[in-house]
């Protein structure tokens, strides 16, 4: 099943005086259970592509043309289409978990809210039970305690697990993850990637992954697209692109990445709560 089909997507950003074509005719697709990665240097237009597909760019900033079909429905036209898909068919895992939650509401309130967007008929207790089981599913220890915590009381890695749980809570067909580990400690990164792989195995969810890290791309992806200045310069199965890069830009990106070594599950050593809040 085709979960996402992007055809000749263009995004022009209106920046006061000038117009920047941040995404310049990009086409790709993702099937069920697949992970497709967009990789490229900073400023190449990776986030803009993802945010345009989710329609999270303000109308007075971005002009979108081309086509992006989520589950067959084109989201580039009326916002009404994406409004019905967000939190139901498609979900986002953000780059920086530390700023991604409402700072004055508990984790639990925000999780039950997310659960009830997809399942509005659930009662309070049922939504809470589902939230707690989701927190267990993403390996948050002592979920009942974290449920009542506020975002500032959790570490970045734990918050990212919460945000992944929220994305999973929607039973979406597609998760967009924009650099899901780049704001986290190196020791925590592998645990989060591991979790994403595990969840994908369990649920068969499709993943649009964005990264500038070829090691991450190689670990996670079925296919990769290499992005440069708003356009794809190369794409295909991950092994082909990594082992036989055709474009000099890809070769340059590859040269910058050290070999990825084996690791022990860092989730086990990850601190549950930030040091500071032990006080």
């Amino acid at each position: 099943m085709r979960v996402l089909e992007v055809t000749d997507l263009q995004v022009e950003l209106l920046t006061g005086t000038s117009v920047v074509r941040a995404v310049d005719g990009v086409s790709f697709h993702i099937d069920q259970g697949e992970t497709v990665t967009i990789i490229g240097e900073s400023g190449s237009g990776k986030s803009t592509t993802a945010m345009a597909i989710l329609r999270l760019l303000p109308d007075d900033l971005a002009v979108i043309s081309g086509e992006a079909r989520i589950g067959g429905q084109d989201v580039t036209g009326s916002r009404k289409v994406i409004d019905k898909l967000r939190g139901r068919a498609v979900a986002l895992i953000p780059q920086d978990p530390m700023t991604a939650l409402n700072p004055i509401r508990t984790i639990g309130r925000q999780m039950t809210e997310a659960v009830r967007i997809k399942y509005p008929d659930l009662g309070r207790a049922e939504a809470k039970a589902r939230a707690l089981s989701l927190m267990e599913q993403v390996h948050i220890r002592n979920p009942a305690k974290q449920f009542d915590a506020y975002p500032h009381q959790l570490s970045g890695g734990m918050l990212q697990r919460v945000l992944i749980a929220m994305a999973v809570s929607t039973d979406a067909d597609l998760i967009v993850a924009d650099e899901p580990t780049s704001a986290l400690d190196v020791t925590v990164q592998a645990g989060i990637l591991d979790l994403l792989l595990e969840l994908q195995e369990q649920t068969g969810i499709a993943l649009l992954l964005i990264t500038h890290d070829l090691g991450v791309a190689r670990l996670m992806s079925d296919r990769v697209h290499v992005m440069k200045a708003g356009a794809f310069v190369e794409g295909g199965p991950v092994t082909d692109v990594v082992d036989h890069p055709q474009h000099p830009y890809t070769q340059k990106l590859l040269g910058a990445i050290p070999e990825l070594g084996p690791w022990v599950d860092p989730g086990a050593s990850e601190p549950l709560v930030k040091e500071a809040s032990h006080g």
Binding site: L54, L56, D83, R86, G87, R88, A91, L92, P94, D96, T99, A100, L101, N102, P103, Q110, E113, A114, I117, K118, L163, M166, A167, T170
Partner: peptide, 13 residues
């Protein structure tokens, strides 16, 4: 314009 709002919007709030 803050990130937490954009993320909440992506959840369908």
């Amino acid at each position: 314009a803050s990130p937490y709002l954009t993320v909440a919007r992506s959840r369908g709030v």
